[in-house]
């Protein structure tokens, strides 16, 4: 029974990890950028939801309609303001630029909102569903369902719209995409905006599950790195499978060896994957970096 409980909890949180990682892997796939700002965008979205709820009593799921455009705009802004210049230099330059932005955002949050942990106490927050011994946290279930829906929308967008197809083309072969007349600047901006909006959705969904604080992004960034490498850097399907897998691994290891050590398990898993199969468990090839 306990295994079923752990499996279900793991899959639920894994769904949210998948959504976070989807944005990261999309940005990597298209631009070959490892985006260190990604986790902080989650944090910003959570604060945004928190303040909307606390100050203006906007329900989290209504708040999404504001969080999504704001985060998308923020993503586009970061791309236009910094990344597009750094990307021309080198992979190293773009990594370091995103690290720099991440540091600025984290500390701006620290100055603005202090290091207090803040969580949304809405009517859902403490609810849970129960079947016999199985307990399922209501906000987590809602977050999972939300993540599932948004993931489905993203896949539909990428497969059935012109822009979505262009993004996929660019992520498979940038050169071919340019030859096809796809404007790379536009694709990059849109991808960065979408990737950031996705993590924004995850943030809004998570704001009743976790308390937010300025450095919260770092731990989620680390998790999404693990997920994305596990699934194959740049692979969207891989990000989803990887997210679910890491959700389960994390939940199981937290139960058996303790919450403080759970990170150790997935970090070691991460290192083993990097060493043994850097293309990822579900990735077909190593993306052509460093050329």
């Amino acid at each position: 029974m306990i295994f079923l409980q752990l499996l279900i909890s793991g899959i639920l949180i894994g769904g949210v990890y998948a959504l976070i990682s989807l944005g990261l892997t999309l940005i990597f796939g298209v631009m070959r950028i490892v985006n260190f700002v990604h986790g902080d965008m989650l944090m910003v979205a959570m604060y945004l939801s928190y303040w909307l709820f606390t100050l203006y009593s906007v329900e989290l799921y209504t708040g999404l309609f504001l969080v999504i455009p704001v985060l998308a705009a923020l993503g586009a802004l970061i791309y236009w303001g910094v990344i597009r210049f750094a990307i021309r230099r080198s992979h190293e330059a773009s990594i370091l630029a995103t690290i720099g932005i991440s540091i600025v955002i984290q500390n701006a949050a620290l100055l603005l909102w202090s290091s207090d942990y803040r969580s949304v106490h809405n009517e859902w927050a403490t609810h849970s569903l129960q079947w016999g011994d199985l307990r399922i946290s209501a906000p987590l279930l809602i977050a999972f369902i939300g993540a599932l829906l948004v993931t489905g929308l993203v896949f539909a967008f990428l497969h059935y719209t012109y822009l979505g197809k262009a993004i996929r083309a660019a992520s498979m072969d940038r050169f071919a995409a340019i030859l096809m007349g796809v404007n790379p600047q536009r694709i990059f901006t849109v991808s960065f905006a979408i990737g950031t909006a996705l993590v924004g959705v995850a943030g809004a969904l998570l704001s009743s599950v976790y308390a937010v604080h300025p450095t919260l992004g770092t731990q989620f960034l680390l998790i999404s790195f693990v997920v994305v490498v596990l699934g194959g850097l740049g692979s969207l399907r891989g990000a989803i499978l990887g997210g679910l897998l890491i959700g389960v691994v994390e939940t199981v290891s937290a139960y058996f060896i303790g919450a403080s050590m759970k990170q150790l398990v997935y970090l070691l898993l991460f290192l083993v994957i990097l060493i043994v199969k850097p293309a990822g468990l579900f990735g077909k090839r190593i993306p052509e970096v460093n050329q």
């Binding site: 210049f85 630029a97 932005i101 540091i103 600025v104 500390n107 701006a108 100055l111």
Partner: peptide, 22 residues
């Protein structure tokens, strides 16, 4: 509030160096 300010300076400096004096 020096902690946050200092770190923000680090971050901005990193971005500026990468962009302007790589």
């Amino acid at each position: 509030a020096q902690g946050g300010i200092q770190a923000m300076m680090y971050g901005s400096l990193l971005v500026l160096v990468v962009l302007f004096v790589p």
